[in-house]
């Protein structure tokens, strides 16, 4: 049995993982605002970015409360370093073309949907409440990105080619989604966290079926080394954070 302190630390770390995933993905999606492939889709991508940033706020706020050091969601977002961030490397990858953005989104949406589906029954009340609200949003996100994978994969020759390139390029980042460490194991055993093994099964099923329906090939399972849950990242995250954190870091005594 772990101590109460270890339990809080586990929960804090777990909430950072959930929150950072959504903050970094929301950041990337917001880069599309004003540059979308059609006006209607510009609005759709902004909606999904808004949902993700909104979820990140709830998750990081709860993380700060559990940590108990008086850190707000903004403190956590703006005053941590790259090595403190816990988001998946997949999500910090640049937007690339629309196919890259939507393949990244689809891989994450499936993952996020099943995560929330499990977390709805979390024995941690605060986390469960966030999951109930977020699941509604995640359900729509998945419907949106899944439709696009079908459209792009089975659309024109060019869209098929671009989407296959994006799938091949991003697939190696998906391995670490399901790497469970001790924190996952302890919290899953306590009925608080989502069981990554089970999510992996569901994820594979939906992703395989969708790729097949979209006439896309599933790449071989050669995965990049993971470790983002312990603060390992690609170089892209540093640039995201330097842009995102510039104002609070430059004027730490100012309110906005």
């Amino acid at each position: 049995m772990g101590s109460a302190k270890q339990h809080d630390n586990d929960l804090f770390e777990y909430l950072l993982r959930l929150g950072d995933d959504r903050l970094i993905l929301g950041h990337r999606l917001s880069e599309w605002c004003g540059h979308g492939p059609m006006l209607e889709e510009d609005i759709a991508l902004s909606n999904i970015a808004l949902d993700n940033v909104g979820q990140a706020i709830s998750l990081l706020q709860l993380a700060g409360e559990i940590e108990g050091k008086g850190r707000s969601e903004d403190d956590l977002a703006y005053f941590r370093e790259t090595i403190d961030y816990r988001n998946l490397m997949l999500l910090e990858q640049p937007n690339g073309d629309f196919a890259h953005t939507l393949v990244r989104q689809f891989f994450f949406d499936v993952y996020s949907y099943y995560t929330y589906l499990a977390l709805e029954k979390s024995l941690h009340e605060g986390l469960g409440a966030i999951a109930v609200k977020s699941l509604r949003e995640a359900t729509y996100h998945l419907r949106h990105s899944r439709e696009w994978i079908l459209r792009l994969g089975d659309g024109t020759e060019e869209s098929h080619r671009r989407t296959q390139v994006a799938v091949n390029h991003l697939w190696p980042f998906t391995g670490e989604m399901f790497e469970a460490d001790e924190i996952d194991e302890r919290l899953t055993a306590q009925g608080i966290a989502a069981d990554l093994k089970k999510i992996q099964l569901d994820w594979r099923k939906v992703v395989n079926e969708t790729l097949a329906e979209a006439t896309l090939e599933k790449p071989e399972d050669r995965f990049l080394p993971g470790g983002s849950r312990q603060g390992k990242h690609t170089e892209h995250l540093g640039f995201i954070l330097s842009e995102m954190q510039i104002l609070p870091r430059s004027y730490p005594d100012a309110g906005w």
Partner: peptide
């Protein structure tokens, strides 16, 4: 109104544009 290639996209666009 919205522009869309098919009905599903029209529904999704309508949701994002008019129900946000």
């Amino acid at each position: 109104s919205v522009h869309a290639a098919d009905a599903e996209q029209a529904l999704q666009n309508a949701r994002d544009v008019y129900a946000r």
